[in-house]
Design a protein around this nucleic acid. Structure first.
Length: 858
RNA sequence: GGGCGUUUAGCUCAGCUGGGAGAGCGCUUCCCUUACAAGGAAGAGGUCGGGGGUUCGAAACCCUCAACGCCCACCA
């Protein structure tokens, strides 16, 4: 073995062997209970970031452990076509050559994107491999592959037939830069400092005017009405009058509507039905005309008079100036308000009236709520259920059409008469009028439409495949809280609707990876850490361990390179411990399973007993997805019990029969337990210890129950006590001390004496009674130690030490006595608690007395 | 405006059903003892955000205040 742990070298050696062994396929354990999970498909042209690394590490830890526990595990990998995001990337490339997608035309452009996908589509999957993840690559899917496209079409057509999917003219969110509609949740709101413009709207009959307020004065070009609240006394007389719209001179009515807030501004609202959802509703209620004054690029249309052709923000200023010139501008004041931005490009979105396809969302909400409420699906942590419910309860219809080219084309065809043909196969003539002139809808579907089907489309649906029968519903879904609405909620809706069941039984929500200062990692902030760079510098295993050590459900993960370095140190420790064990047991001689000794000595029994407890605790915590806690328990056990104590103990007990065997077995089980987090390193150590097969394919430890002898903690306390004495008195570790041990309860053996002598670096004499004078007492459970002080120490320092110990004991004793003196406590507290306090009191009294006599004898 | 969460050691966080304040990192002192100095041994450090209440007993349960963070909402 290398003298030290070299992660990078090791990590190039194992992936192929795992794959060749077929480990990642559920067929590896054909008879196991199925356990299925699907990867949240990353953008196909994307690159791995730390959020992926966290998500995948959690997946892999779950999946590798389940595999070792005997489940038939399927982890489906794949990528998402990421409609707008990918199209934007390719368009940016084209722009560098001075081209737009329109220069290429639709077909050539799409071919270009496919080319891009072929070129970069492997990058992210390669990165996923590099970090040691173990999905079943033979079942890798892409949201636009043939099968998934068929699933998308099937869902679209079925929903259409069921009347749950329709086409309609609505106000949607429009991104003028991407030139497409967006769903409500694709808009990110941000408070910005804007202005509120007050405009005077004169009555046509010259009898006065009303003053309206708006944050978007340019929209007045599309005004077709003015509204006040019906109960607003100030304006009762205005209702029914006609306004002559400034700048354009259009005549528009004043009407009353409940939705107007009399408290806001002047209590008078200009109504622009084509460019505001509220106004649209009012327009519907009052039969107003809709005038689209802005086009797809955000420029003023021909209906905007002199302003036609201007960009919306340019028009905003121009309209204001024109109003001022006309004397209609009352004032402009600062106004902080929330403005929506495109989640893909950050451009300010416009509410925009257009003809789009929608999913009648409300129909899907109740089943999706019920499924979580009655526990068919469980959120971990549970508090996210509230957000989920809240969102589900307030759903508006989902706008699914996008005016881009990259994605699943909407399977709807229109004849010249406007008849709509939707079908599973492309129509050749209009079903209504027989026209053979048909044009397919140019739009594509929202990326999330196909993502919503992922848990069953990847298993072969709509075909009734074996995988579908075996692995649906999935066991768990692991994702971040940021896509609960985008993804989790919609998978739930579609799973329930099309499969009649929840798509997965548990929804595991993890946090965000943050930088060491607690800030969200983002490209714009420049604080991102590339997981591949980390793997390059420190290794993938250390990165994985660092991430999983911080990953409790719902909790953000702060990542500092210190944590990664710490994880690598731990890897090094495991490495060296194994090297030591190999000095005792022959390489390759440790059995893959079992091998626990029949008749262990006390130290063996202790470490094996503790190992059993730790495995059981670790399993419980993993089953609750509390990985941070689980690995904390394991890490501490390995380091402070196995390495710091057991290995040291084993050096002194070479004559005990089970030592070598136990060392090998304990080390092997540690290797198994750490394998889900550090797959490469543990595989390397397994090769050294066991030499046959792979840890990845081994069985999870099942440790028989061993008693944990109390004497072990007595001995440890005795040894620590001697060491503490040494440190406090400034006595060199090389000076051998005399230690008298009084063992009133006869708990120790020759072996114990040997242990104390070696680890404490003392000569032990067993005492028949406690000596009176000339010693320093070491309290160690049922044992008492007496260090000979002759010529060893500074008496003053020893007095000080004793005084400190006495003060501490006295304080503790006083507290216990006060508690016991309180009749309320002795009467009302449970007897067990009272008994415990009494025991404590006796113990402390003895200790006090002993220390005091020690002090007096000095 | 509504909802959720956080506040425990210098830092990151455990502490689940109320019964002697914990871990890792960092820090201090000593030690290159033949697995490991990417290490070992020993140690310092906290009025558990403030206030009130329930209880024999509260970091934990209830109320309240404060600070910070996040999500949702048609703030013209």
């Amino acid at each position: 073995m290398n003298p030290t742990y070299e992660p990078q070298e090791i990590e190039s050696r194992w992936y192929e062997r795992w794959e060749k062994a077929g480990l990642f396929r559920p067929e590896y354990r054909p008879d196991g209970e199925p356990f299925a999970v699907v990867i949240p498909p990353p953008n196909v042209t994307g690159s791995l970031h730390m959020g992926h690394a966290l998500n995948h590490t959690i997946h892999d830890v779950i999946v590798r452990r389940k595999r070792m526990q005997g489940y038939s595990v399927l982890w489906v990998p794949g990528t998402d076509h990421a409609g707008i995001a990918t199209q934007n990337v390719v368009e940016r490339d084209l722009a560098n050559e001075g081209l737009s997608r329109h220069d290429l035309g639709r077909e050539a452009f799409i071919e270009q994107v496919w080319e891009y996908k072929r070129k970069f589509g492997n990058r992210i999957t390669e990165q996923i491999r590099r970090l040691g993840n173990s999905p079943d690559w033979s079942r890798e899917r892409f949201t636009m592959d043939e099968g998934l496209s068929r699933a998308v079409r099937e869902v679209f057509v079925t929903l259409y037939e069921q009347g749950l999917l329709y086409r309609g003219n609505r106000i949607i969110n429009w991104c003028p830069r991407c030139a497409t509609a967006l769903a409500d949740i694709e808009v990110e709101y941000e408070d910005v400092d804007g202005t509120l413009t007050r405009i005077r709207y004169p009555f046509a009959d010259g009898s006065g005017s009303l003053v309206v307020s708006t944050t978007r004065p340019e929209t007045m070009l599309g005004d077709t009405g003015v509204a006040v609240h019906p109960d607003d006394d100030r304006y009762t007389s205005a209702i029914g009058k006609t306004i002559r719209l400034p700048l354009l001179g259009r005549l528009i009515p004043v009407f009353a509507d409940d939705s107007v807030d009399p408290e806001f501004g002047t209590g008078v609202v200009k109504v622009t039905p084509a460019h505001d959802p509220n106004d649209f509703d009012m327009g519907q209620r009052h039969g107003l005309e809709t005038i689209v004054m802005m086009d797809e690029a955000g420029s003023v249309t021909g209906d905007g008079g002199n302003f036609a052709g201007m960009d919306r923000f340019e028009a905003r200023e121009a309209v204001r100036r024109a109003l001022e010139a006309e004397g209609a501008l009352v004032g402009v004041e600062p106004h902080r308000h929330s403005v929506g931005h495109c989640y893909r490009c950050g451009t300010v979105v416009e509410p925009y009236l257009s003809l789009q396809w929608f999913v009648a969302n409300s129909q899907f909400s109740k089943p999706a709520i019920d499924a979580v409420a009655d526990g068919r699906n469980r959120f971990v942590p549970k508090r996210w259920e509230k957000s989920y419910f809240n969102w589900m309860e307030n759903l508006r219809d989902w706008c699914i059409s996008r005016q881009i080219w990259w994605g699943h084309r909407i399977p709807a065809w229109y004849c010249p008469d406007g008849h709509v043909n939707v079908g599973r196969v492309d129509p050749t003539e209009c079903a209504e009028c027989g026209s053979q002139v048909l044009a397919q809808d140019p739009d594509v579907l929202d990326t999330w439409f196909s993502s919503a089907l992922w848990p069953f489309s990847t298993l072969g649906w709509p075909d009734q495949t074996d995988d579908l029968a075996r692995f649906f519903p999935n066991s768990v879904l692991v994702t971040g809280f940021d896509i609960i609405y985008f993804w989790v909620a919609r998978m739930m809706q579609m799973g329930l609707h099309f499969m009649g069941d929840v798509p997965f039984r548990e929804t595991i929500i993890h946090g965000l990876v943050r930088d060491s200062a607690g800030f969200k990692m983002s490209k714009s902030k420049g604080n991102t850490i590339d997981p591949l760079d980390v793997a390059e510098e420190y290794g993938a295993d250390p990165l994985r361990l660092a991430l999983i050590q911080a990953a409790n459900p719902g909790q953000d993960v702060p990542l500092d390179m210190e944590w990664v370095r710490g994880a690598r140190k731990f890897g090094n420790k495991l490495w060296n411990a194994t090297k030591f064990v190999l000095g005792t047991v022959e390489s390759g001689s440790v059995p893959a399973d079992g091998g626990y000794p029949q008749d262990p000595g006390p130290a063996e029994s202790w470490i094996l007993g503790r190992l059993g407890q730790v495995v059981s605790r670790f399993d419980d915590l993993c089953d609750e997805y509390r990985f941070s806690d689980a690995f904390g328990v394991l890490y501490n056990f390995a380091w402070s019990e196995v390495f710091d104590w057991y290995i040291e103990i084993s050096k002194t007990t070479s004559d005990l029969p089970a030592t070598g065997q136990t060392l090998g077995v304990v080390m092997r089980d540690l290797v198994k337990l750490f394998h889900p987090a550090m797959p490469y390193l543990t595989e390397e150590l397994w090769e050294q210890l066991v030499g046959k097969g792979l840890v990845a394919g081994s069985d999870w430890p099942q440790v028989p129950v061993y008693p944990v002898p109390d004497v072990m903690s007595d001995l440890q306390e005795m040894i620590s006590g001697v060491r503490r004495f040494r440190a406090e008195q400034g006595i060199s570790p090389r000076k051998r001390l005399e230690l008298g041990v009084f063992d009133a309860n006869h708990v120790i053996s020759d072996w114990s004496v040997d242990l104390i002598e070696r680890l404490g670096f003392v000569d032990v004499e067993l005492l028949e009674s406690e000596p009176d004078t000339g010693h320093s007492r070491v309290v160690a459970g049922r044992l008492s130690g007496f260090i000979g002080l002759d010529g060893v120490i500074d008496l003053d320092a020893e007095r000080e030490r004793l005084d400190k110990a006495i003060a501490v004991a006295a304080g503790d004793l006083a507290r216990v006595e006060a508690k016991l003196a309180n009749p309320q406590f002795t009467e009302k507290a449970p007897p067990a608690v009272v008994a415990k306090e009494n025991g404590k009191k006796a113990e402390l009294s003895d200790l006090m007395a002993a220390l005091q006599s020690q002090r007096d004898a000095l």
